[in-house]
Computed example of a mutant assay.
Amino acid sequence: MAKIVEIFVLVFSILLISSWVPISLSSKKPVGAARREDIPYIKCQVCEKLANQLYQQVQTKQTQISPKKISEYEIIEMSENVCNLKKQEADWILKIDIVEQGDKLELVEHDSEGQCNSECKTIERACQEVMGYSDTDVAEYLYKHKPQKDSLTHFLCNKLSKSCTNKPPPVPKDRTPGEPFFPKSSKEAEMDKILKSMEGMPGAPGMKMFSKEDLMNKNFGDEDADEDDDDDDDEADFPSKLGKVLREKTSTKSDWKQTITRKVVETGETLKRHANKFSNRIQKWWKGKKSSLKKKKSKSKSSKPEL
């Protein structure tokens, strides 16, 4: 199945080369990983833009389906997808550039979409942190209260996520600048939208657009590999002396086992001694009882009158 998918993607991409020559001739730059250290400096701005996008997308959808009213399910779907670059609802992230302004980072919005590199991934990650697990709460607020943009921004950024309750810290002077904003061509942006709309459709699983260099090198890897590397880095914090820790835990467990076993044996022996004493006392009492009964019987026989 994987071979069939690879061949299908290869053939489909080659067919597109004729209408995609300017893009395919220049190798597509690898997608960078999110710079998590930049998130505190842009989180509030991302939250404000996120609120604006949710408001605009709901209004646009309502206009498209009027006079029918937008459903809560449709708003929930928007809230779930608005921070996911694989979905069309998150295309707004592709237009934003992170620009250094003194000791601050500013989000500058462009008219066209740009190539998605580390800054794009950083904004996506910040957006996901803002939304967290509150997508249904935001959708419910939008559906029930139908708020204005300012009210939605206050609800999301101050009450719910608290992204804007404190001022962002100053940016360190030794921060490495981000990459410049590279706009996409109109053809590339249009093709990306087509492929996103086809994603998940039967017969078009996981379709992507590749450069000429990718096609020649058969580089059909996952663009999220860098994020996986980040997760691996997080796992690097695991104790290096794991063996020692496990041995200590094992020895502790064995000590406990020995202690419990010894206590059980000692308790058993003590109970056995008490049981033997109790048994001996019962036997003595029963012997005494039997002898007293015999004496009473003998006395009663001797005291009977002779006829």
Results as ranks from 00 to 15, higher is better:
residue 4 I to A: 02
residue 5 V to A: 13
residue 6 E to H: 00
residue 7 I to S: 06
residue 10 L to T: 14
residue 15 L to R: 14
residue 15 L to E: 04
residue 21 V to R: 12
residue 21 V to S: 04
residue 22 P to C: 13
residue 23 I to T: 00
residue 27 S to Q: 13
residue 28 K to N: 02
residue 29 K to D: 14
residue 40 P to Q: 01
residue 43 K to T: 08
residue 43 K to D: 00
residue 44 C to H: 09
residue 46 V to P: 05
residue 53 Q to S: 15
residue 57 Q to G: 06
residue 57 Q to A: 07
residue 58 V to W: 12
residue 60 T to F: 00
residue 60 T to R: 01
residue 62 Q to V: 06
residue 65 I to A: 08
residue 65 I to P: 01
residue 66 S to D: 00
residue 70 I to P: 09
residue 70 I to K: 02
residue 71 S to C: 08
residue 72 E to P: 03
residue 74 E to P: 01
residue 76 I to N: 15
residue 76 I to F: 03
residue 79 S to A: 15
residue 79 S to D: 10
residue 79 S to I: 04
residue 81 N to C: 15
residue 83 C to L: 11
residue 88 Q to L: 11
residue 96 I to Y: 04
residue 97 D to Y: 05
residue 97 D to C: 13
residue 97 D to G: 08
residue 98 I to E: 07
residue 101 Q to L: 01
residue 101 Q to G: 11
residue 104 K to C: 05
residue 104 K to A: 02
residue 106 E to H: 06
residue 106 E to Y: 09
residue 108 V to T: 01
residue 111 D to H: 05
residue 114 G to V: 07
residue 114 G to N: 11
residue 115 Q to F: 02
residue 118 S to Y: 00
residue 122 T to D: 06
residue 123 I to Q: 01
residue 123 I to F: 02
residue 124 E to V: 04
residue 124 E to K: 08
residue 125 R to Y: 05
residue 130 V to Q: 00
residue 130 V to D: 03
residue 130 V to H: 06
residue 133 Y to E: 15
residue 138 V to A: 14
residue 140 E to Y: 01
residue 142 L to P: 10
residue 147 P to Y: 07
residue 147 P to G: 05
residue 148 Q to M: 13
residue 150 D to Q: 14
residue 152 L to T: 02
residue 152 L to R: 08
residue 154 H to F: 12
residue 154 H to K: 12
residue 158 N to W: 02
residue 160 L to S: 02
residue 164 C to Q: 00
residue 166 N to F: 08
residue 169 P to M: 10
residue 170 P to Q: 11
residue 172 P to W: 00
residue 174 D to K: 14
residue 179 E to H: 03
residue 179 E to G: 07
residue 181 F to L: 11
residue 184 K to L: 14
residue 184 K to Q: 13
residue 187 K to Y: 14
residue 194 I to D: 02
residue 194 I to L: 14
residue 195 L to V: 04
residue 196 K to C: 05
residue 197 S to E: 03
residue 197 S to R: 03
residue 198 M to L: 15
residue 199 E to W: 11
residue 202 P to W: 08
residue 206 G to F: 10
residue 207 M to K: 01
residue 207 M to Y: 03
residue 209 M to E: 09
residue 210 F to W: 03
residue 212 K to Y: 00
residue 212 K to E: 11
residue 212 K to Q: 00
residue 214 D to A: 09
residue 218 K to E: 11
residue 219 N to E: 10
residue 221 G to N: 11
residue 223 E to D: 09
residue 225 A to D: 13
residue 229 D to R: 04
residue 230 D to Q: 15
residue 231 D to E: 09
residue 235 E to I: 09
residue 235 E to A: 12
residue 238 F to S: 10
residue 239 P to E: 04
residue 242 L to G: 04
residue 242 L to A: 09
residue 243 G to Q: 00
residue 247 R to H: 06
residue 249 K to P: 00
residue 255 D to W: 08
residue 255 D to E: 14
residue 259 T to V: 12
residue 263 K to S: 10
residue 264 V to S: 12
residue 264 V to Q: 12
residue 269 E to H: 07
residue 269 E to A: 10
residue 270 T to G: 09
residue 277 K to I: 15
residue 278 F to C: 07
residue 286 W to V: 08
residue 289 K to F: 14
residue 289 K to V: 04
residue 299 K to N: 05
residue 303 S to N: 14
